[in-house]
Design a protein around this nucleic acid. Structure first.
Lengths: 216, 216
DNA sequence: ACGTCGGGTTTGGTATACCGCTAATACGCC
DNA sequence: GGCGTATTAGCGGTATACCAAACCCGACGT
């Protein structure tokens, strides 16, 4: 299936660039995003920039301010807890469906993601570990075989990456993913749901701690 | 500052027009959406059209086909069941939070929506009943006091409208809403969750019946 | 010192043009 | 006459230029 691609609009490239800049902290929360400036910097016209900014607004990474420049979004503790609540609902469903509908091929892909994450976490490679963790979530979502759920996951992915970037205990996350993987393999739905809730609790407390520390 | 409202981009107007056209069946599933044609029809340039099309794609009403014209989305039974699964997760959360966090003012607004829906349903005014039902859902979501949840509700709203337009038993829906309202007032979380699941089951079977009948 | 006003800036929008790809049509071959 | 192919018309993606409305900020006046 991977094929069929091979074409990428300029606006997608710009979107990715901007998204990575924001998530990597190159563009700090609150900083200005001026269309003409960005167009000059990235060597494109204003149109792809406008498209990209619109996309990032729907991803929740950019705050538009009508009639004037947009800014990189600043996340509040409320935003974090809101995200936690939505994840508790959506991921419970995702993992439950994944456990029920997993295929052999999907499971293999999931195992590969998991191994990559464990390996990177043990090596202390935060960038790779987080990328693998994101892949793990994406693969689980595809296992759930619900197109709408996949769409929602895509729009939440940026916020998830943001959350994960404020997470220190990468090995702990990876181990929880391993437990979830085992439960999915065993089709043990009750255990999956229990683990998801535990997983979310961990993410929540880690992010809270991070926000507290960056405040002072 | 007071009047930060009172301004509406052209693209929003176009989006609304197109969305209503699609939902009302003026533009049939599968029909072409050609940017230049739409621009001429609606008397605007291509840019607002592009913006509107993009918005409708994220709302799931339009299927983009890279490099060529977009088409009005055709919903499949799978799409309906996917939506049902997502709603089961999201609305359970929404109504639970609403029951826990409701305010007096919010409750009054909700009662008003409900009364309007009951009245319209009894009168047999399908258009008004569906509008009121949508308002009811929106108000419940605002009661949940979760900004992200509200965002997701907005993107799912079009699909909900689509689903509701395939629903005949408007009085039944209104009565279920009334039960939900009572449970929210009583902060009876277990009952809310039970009612939400029943509510979803009803929507699901109604839509399924509709798809079957339109098939033959 | 503080409030107000105005100019520079930025966005949202329109018009126009061009390129590369898509798809529909017409042609030619069998 | 039917079918596969080549040509062509059409469409989306992007670039450039320009305008109006609204915002930001600093300068000015009180």
């Amino acid at each position: 299936m991977a094929g069929s691609e091979g074409f990428e609009p300029e606006s997608d490239r710009v979107t990715r660039q901007l998204r990575d800049d924001i998530l990597d902290g190159v563009r700090r929360p609150g900083s200005k995003l001026v269309e003409r400036e960005l167009a000059a910097e990235l060597g494109v016209s204003r149109l792809p920039i406008r498209d990209a900014l619109k996309a990032l607004v729907t991803e929740g990474l950019v705050t538009p301010r009508p009639r004037t420049w947009a800014v990189v979004r600043e996340f509040s503790p409320t935003d974090v807890s809101d995200l936690g609540e939505v994840r508790s609902a959506l991921e419970t469903l995702t993992f439950r469906l994944a456990a029920q509908r997993r295929t052999r091929a999907g499971l293999e892909k999931l195992r590969a993601d998991l191994d990559a994450e464990l390996e990177a976490a043990q090596r202390g490679d935060a960038v790779q570990a987080r990328r693998a963790a994101a892949d793990f979530h994406e693969t689980v979502t595809s296992l759930a075989a619900n197109e709408l759920l996949s769409e929602l996951e895509r729009t939440l992915r940026s916020r998830m990456r943001w959350l994960l970037s404020r997470h220190d205990d990468l090995l702990g996350v990876a181990r929880e993913h391993e437990n979830l993987y085992d439960a999915i393999v065993a089709r043990d739905v009750p255990r999956v749901e229990e683990l998801v809730l535990k997983h979310l609790e961990m993410g929540r407390s880690a992010a809270a701690a991070h926000l507290r520390s960056s405040k002072e």
